[in-house]
Structure formats: structure tokens, C-alpha cells
Design a protein around this nucleic acid. Structure first.
Lengths: 348, 348
DNA sequence: GTGAAAGCGCTAACAT
DNA sequence: ATGTTAGCGCTTTCAC
């Protein structure tokens, strides 16, 4: 029930604890090969494994990082978490998972608790405009990589932001629609209060203006005002939007959904209203989750490369943790890619 | 950069460290109200937060549990992880996330590392028939709840297993199909080597036999033998199965897929072969993931109540950790529920 | 009611 | 080349 300590190993090998510790910490050059072998033999014979709590208490280091996502129940975040965990594992790091439900209080509380746990590196997936709620921890030595969010003017200087280029992505999507000949276009989203959603909306607006569409031709469906939609409700919300939009006297011929889950909901809503997606109404999403290709019809969308982004996120965090010298903040914008499938076509 | 210690609080409050510790550990009854107030004031004034590593080293306790899932990128496991994290949080526990990719070596290695971290409670989502690879840790005091897997004869005695009742679920699904009048039925799965898949197959077989179907009427598509399918490939696999099955001279009129992701893949494969799902071929899944209801047509499936199962998993683990007295092992089988949607209909 | 002190397991000066 | 030792921050007996 109790673990083997370094002292027992030392005694079994006939050396001092420091020699064992030296070996364990890559300083085996300091001892005779024979000594080294004796210690190694003792370690494996006794099945010794270092106590991480003791190591952490002593050195202050811990090979665990925190990951705060809105909800892993959302396949997008699940996939991101999966890639991030893989990247962390490759460097011998573990990942502590936290679901914020996009609640700033919960975000802050979680990060504080991670800090209490001794964790000094966190990937925060938050699209909240302000990061003030985690500022105190930053000055206490927390390395933070913000994901899915571009740098804001009010951000603390040392912050690293990683995000897809939302503006370009939304423009790509919108241009695809206008190039197909669509003029009655709807934009569907929950609250636009998050940074990336605002950016996607901005990209949509510039592209729509560039195509010369009038305000009367463009509809913005941005959720029941005041209500709070979680990530899980994205599909429900899309469904409601799809139904409402397509039930109007002059329904849009194309719908740009803020993300794929919402787009899949729009599918259902449009069907509820009696419209065939990809034929009578075009739908485009954002993210390219696994299910986009499986949907009927396969969803045209804007792909974020999650493997690349997760690798970048952990890489930045890792170098932030390892190098003690403070670096200036930086913003990494990954270019998205339009993936044309069968949910978009020219209007009839 | 450095944290406030209990000594600084003690000095600021004019008391000894033990008094501060007593207060922190719910023994405030031992001191005068005035003392207590002074200490509390000092704590909040200094912003003191206990060092968890030191607490853990001293007490051996840690409020973190491990979660090993095949892959959080799979929405089913993502949703489970989400519910489990919520249940853990409600008791003040954190969750360390590990993706095993269904690799026994990786499972074992992860659990050993969790043990090194001081973690003494793990929810292991593994359908591997044998748990021998984690047996040594069990005798060293690890509390283990195995999820998605029923008790096997060779299991170590103290083990707690939680699973949906796969046999009943598969029978429910199959009976639904035969009651509709289907006789040419296919069963689609990757390798049948996991416990729960074997059970679902068993349920399918008994139901099929009870309905009086002949071997000639039943097709079993169980993946390319020898090949290893990960969770992410479930949809791809279903797609291949759907295409192959529906391209045969006498295609089945109904397909039972081992899980919803596979069923969604079957949708795509059947469409590739030119068949309309829900009309020309019925498809039924297992799990009831969020997307089941969103698919076109909405997927008829067997629902596992993930909220209930996650709550049960953490509850069992929690009581296993808290109570030092060993309990006998137990197996908890949660009854699934048939959810009839539009992907199944009478054969034409 | 409060405090002194030992020690959890480990690391890294600093001796030798 | 190897050993001695002083803590890291906390909890908890045991004294007072």
C-alpha cells in the first residue's frame, strides 16, 4: 500500500539518497558505471517510482497543464482536447480538463484552482472579449495560451493568442455564396458577444458589402436576445433559426451558420419547414467537424485545422513554461480553408 | 511570484501555524472566536491559498481523479467526460484526462502515471476483456471503476463495473426491426473483440433466433479481420459497410450498427449505393448521441443515459476513495431505452 | 485554547 | 565520486 522511497533504493544499492537522485535526474555522469548499475538494479528490483508530489514540492515543477474548454461534449472541443492531449503526452505532460460552460466566473475559479494545484501552464479556450479575470494569475507566473480568440487591445502584454483567422474564413464562406449567385443570405449565430463570433460576423459583413448586397437582402439571426446559449444548444438553436428563417414570406436562398453544429441544426430546421438543403437552400458552416462530411448532404464549410492548432497551442505553452525569460505576447492566426461539399449550390 | 505560506499567515495573525492549519481543516471549534476572526482576516488580506502539493505530500490525499477514455474526439466519450467532470466538480474534484486509443499498453502506462501523481481513483473506460494489466495497482490501493464493460469471470474481486445493459439494448433494437417485418438484417461492427460489442452481438443473435430468422437471412459485417479500427474511424467503417452491404445482389432491408457513429457512416454508405435511408433501408444505431436526432433522417437508436451513468461512475469512485473499508466488487447495469425516430420503417 | 516540532519524499547545494 | 543535510509547505500528535 505504501510506496518505495528513494532511501530504500539507496540502502538496497549501498549508496546515499543523493546518488540515487542524481541518477534519476540525468546526472549519472557523476558516478562510476558500477555504482550506476547497482542503483539501476535496485530501482527496478524494488519497483521504485518517484513521488511526484514530493518532487513538485521540492522543485516547484509539475508536468501537468490545464485545459479549459467551453464543453468537451461539443465535438469540436472534444477533438481539440484530443489533439492537445496527444501533443502534451509526446512531451511527457498530462492534461487536466475543465469545462467552463463559457462562464467567466467558472473560468477564473478553475484557473485559480489549477494554480493551487501547482499548474503553471494553461490553455484557455475562451472567446470572452476580456481576460481581466485571469490577469492576477499572469503576474504570479502563470503561462497562458488563449485559444480561439485573437489579441484584443486591452489584453495583458505577455499573452499568447492562437486562433483561426475568423475574418478571412467568414469572407471565404460568404464569397463562395455570392459567387454562386446568392443574394438573399442569412447569417445565423447565438449571441455575438464572443470575439471570434464578432470577427466572423465582421468578415461576413465586409464580404456582403463587397458583393454589393443591400441590407434588405441580408438577414441576421443572432439568437433570442438576452438568452444564454451553451455549446450543446448550438444545434437546437440552428434548428430554430432554420425553421423561422425558412418560414418567412421571402426566405433566404443561402444560410451561413456560425459553426458546423449550428449548420447541422439549420439542416433540421430547414427540413422541418419543407426545404431540401443543398437544392432549395444552401447552407455553409464553419469548423469542419468530423460530422460535416457525414451529413446529408455533406456540409460545405470552412475548415480549421485542429491538429495544427492544437500542436501550436501546446508548443507555445511548452516554450512559455520551459523558458524562464519572459517573451513578448504574440498572436498566431491560422488560415482556414474552404471545403466545398454538397450543401451549397446556385440558387434556383 | 512566490506563494504566501501558512507561516506568513500565522505571523500576520499573531498565532502559530498549527492554529491556522486547524482553522483550515475545519477544527475552528478549538479556538476562541476572536482568534478565528484574526486568522480569517489575515488569510483574506494576504490572499493565502494552500499549496496542494504540500498537502498531498503530507496527507497522501488528492482531490483529482483520472479518466481514461478511448478518445474524447468521439462525441460519445466527449459527452461522458463532460458529465463526469461535472459530477466531480460538484464534490470538489478535478479530472485528469487520458486518451487510451483502446491500447492496453497505453492504458496501463497512463494508470501507472496517474498513480505516480498520487491519484488513487480512476474511471477506466475500456472494453478490453481482461483487466490484468492494471491488477498490480489495485492491490496497491487504487480505486478503479470500469465503465462500458460488464464484470468478467476473471476480474479482480474489488472491481466496480458500470455499463449499459448491452444484451437488452441489442435485443430491443433487433426486436424493433423484426417487429417491423424485416427478415434480411445485417449487423455492422468493427472488431467484436471488446466486451460490450460481444454482448451487443449476443443480444442481436438471441433476438434474431427468437424471431426465427435463418442464417441465410442474417449478415454479419464485422470489419476487415486483423485490422484495428479506432473510435474515429467508426464512421468511415460504417460507410464502407453500408456501401458493401447495399451493393450486394440481395441487400439487407435493415442494418443494425454497433453504435451511432457507425450508423451515421452506414447512412453515407447506403446513400453512396443509391439507397434512401428510412425508406429503402432501415438503419438503427446504439448510444443516442446528440447528432442522432439531427441526422437526416433522424436516427432510431438505443439510448444510454450518459448523465445517469456518469453520475453513477463518479459516485461509485467517490465512495470507493472516501471509505477506507474495502467493499466487494459490484456490477451496475443501466437499462437502455429504445428511441424510435425515422430511420426505421417496415420493409417495402 | 494554543504552540512546538517532527516528518511526508525529494533535490541540490555543499561537504568530504 | 559520493555523502550529509537543509529545507519545500503542510498536518498532526503531543505538550503546555
Amino acid at each position: 500500500m505504501k510506496g518505495v522511497t528513494i532511501y530504500e533504493v539507496a540502502r538496497a544499492a549501498g549508496v546515499s539518497p543523493s546518488t540515487v537522485s542524481n541518477l534519476l535526474n540525468g546526472r549519472s555522469g557523476r558516478m562510476l558505471p558500477a555504482t550506476r548499475e547497482r542503483v539501476e538494479a535496485a530501482i527496478s528490483r524494488l519497483g521504485y517510482r518517484p513521488n511526484r508530489a514530493a518532487q513538485q514540492l521540492r522543485t516547484g515543477r509539475i508536468r501537468t497543464v490545464g485545459l479549459v474548454v467551453p464543453s468537451v461534449a461539443n465535438p469540436f472541443w472534444g477533438t481539440f482536447a484530443w489533439h492537445l492531449e496527444g501533443a502534451a503526452l509526446a512531451q511527457g505532460y498530462h492534461v487536466l480538463l475543465c469545462n467552463s460552460e463559457r462562464d467567466p466566473d467558472r473560468e477564473r475559479q478553475y484557473i485559480e484552482e489549477l494554480f493551487d494545484d501547482g499548474i503553471r501552464g494553461v490553455v484557455l479556450c475562451s472567446s470572452l472579449p476580456s481576460l481581466d479575470h485571469v490577469l492576477p494569475l499572469l503576474s504570479r507566473g502563470l503561462a497562458l495560451v488563449a485559444f480561439d480568440r485573437t489579441t484584443q487591445a486591452g489584453d495583458p502584454p505577455p499573452l499568447v493568442n492562437i486562433s483561426v483567422d475568423n475574418v478571412v474564413g467568414a469572407q471565404l464562406a460568404t464569397q463562395h455564396l455570392t459567387a454562386l449567385g446568392h443574394r438573399r443570405i442569412a447569417f445565423v449565430s447565438g449571441s455575438l458577444a464572443s470575439v471570434n463570433r464578432a470577427e466572423r460576423f465582421h468578415g461576413f459583413q465586409t464580404a456582403v458589402a463587397a458583393a454589393g448586397l443591400t441590407d434588405a437582402e441580408v438577414t441576421v439571426w443572432a439568437g433570442a436576445s438576452g438568452s444564454q446559449y451553451g455549446d450543446l444548444d448550438a444545434a437546437d438553436l440552428g434548428r430554430r433559426a432554420g425553421l423561422e428563417l425558412m418560414s418567412a414570406p421571402e426566405p433566404p436562398t443561402a444560410i451561413f451558420a456560425i459553426n458546423d453544429m449550428t449548420a447541422l441544426g439549420v439542416y433540421a430546421g430547414a427540413r422541418d419547414a419543407g426545404f431540401a438543403v443543398g437544392v432549395e437552400v444552401s447552407v455553409i458552416g464553419f469548423d469542419d467537424i468530423v460530422l460535416a462530411d457525414l451529413a446529408a448532404p455533406p456540409l460545405t464549410t470552412v475548415r480549421q485545422s485542429l491538429p495544427d492548432m492544437a500542436a501550436a497551442a501546446f508548443g507555445e505553452l511548452h516554450s512559455l513554461i520551459e523558458s524562464s525569460t519572459p517573451r513578448p505576447g504574440r498572436s498566431l492566426l491560422i488560415r482556414p480553408e474552404l471545403v466545398v461539399r454538397e450543401s451549397t449550390a446556385a440558387p434556383r
